[in-house]
Structure formats: C-alpha cells, structure tokens
C-alpha cells in the first residue's frame, strides 16, 4: 500500500523534524523541503494518469484543450504555491508565505485572462 509507505515516511520525517528543530533548525527546514519534494515525485505518475483521463473526457465533450490546459496549469501553480507557503509557515516566515500566495494569485489571474475574455466575448455576442 502506497499510502502506508507515505504515512510512515511522513511520521518518520516528523520525528526527525521535531528533533532537529530543537537542535539544528536550519536542517529541519531542509528536511521538510526534501519530504515535500519526495511526496511530489512519488505522486507524479498518478497525477499524469489523472490528467490523461481528464484530457480524454474533455476530448469526448469537444472542450477546447487550451482552456483545459490553462486549468491544469492553474491547479499546478496552486499546489506548488501551497507547498512553498506551508514550508515558509513551518519555518516561521508567514510574511514570505503570504508573498508566495500573492504571487500565485497573480499568476493564476494572468492565466485566467483568456477564459475571462472568452466569457465576455460570448456575453457580448449573445446580447443583441
């Protein structure tokens, strides 16, 4: 069971994290980063299969793949920003975590601009 391995690894990392936080705090942050990266890498294959299913469904529904790719990118940005901000919060840098979230929001809005423009165009076309 993959989840048991990940939970075990998480618990182990947590134990080391607590120990290191008291003695060498800088190493505890690096440990947190390493665990985050490891989980991300482990889940990469699963994420790929999920995205493949979504793409197949979208093709069946004649969805414009540009919009779907945009949504995927937005979700990816959200995850990466979440990881980063959580690590910063764990390290006690809430302000830096806030900046990361701010940047993520801006990037998400930038990516969403084509969708917003498309909605506006459709509304304009529908109104006689």
């Amino acid at each position: 069971m993959e989840i048991i391995r990940i939970v075990a690894l998480g618990l182990l990392t947590m134990v080391f994290y607590v120990i290191l936080k008291e003695r060498k705090e800088e190493f505890s942050i690096q440990l947190g980063l390493a665990f985050a990266a490891l989980v991300f890498i482990l889940m990469m294959g699963k994420i790929e299969s999920i995205l493949q299913v979504f793409e197949d469904l979208a093709l069946q529904a004649n969805v414009n793949m540009f919009y779907l790719n945009t949504i995927f990118k937005i979700i990816g940005i959200a995850y990466i920003a979440e990881f980063g901000s959580q690590i910063c919060k764990d390290a006690g840098s809430s302000s830096i975590a806030g900046k990361i979230e701010f940047a993520a929001k801006i990037l998400i809005m930038v990516l969403a601009i084509p969708i917003i423009v498309a909605i506006l165009e459709i509304i304009v076309k529908l109104i006689p």
């Binding site: 919009y67 949504i71 979700i75 979230e101 969403a112 969708i115 459709i122």
Partner: peptide
C-alpha cells in the same frame, strides 16, 4: 489544494464551465 487559493481557482473553474 486546501488553501486560500481554492476560492480563486473555483471561480476560474466556474468560468471554464461557462465558456465550454
């Protein structure tokens, strides 16, 4: 993800549904 970004993403996903 369960973060403050979730609200933003939900809005954009809603717009995506509207467009499609």
């Amino acid at each position: 993800p369960n973060s403050s970004l979730q609200r933003f993403i939900k809005v954009i996903v809603g717009l995506f549904i509207m467009v499609t």
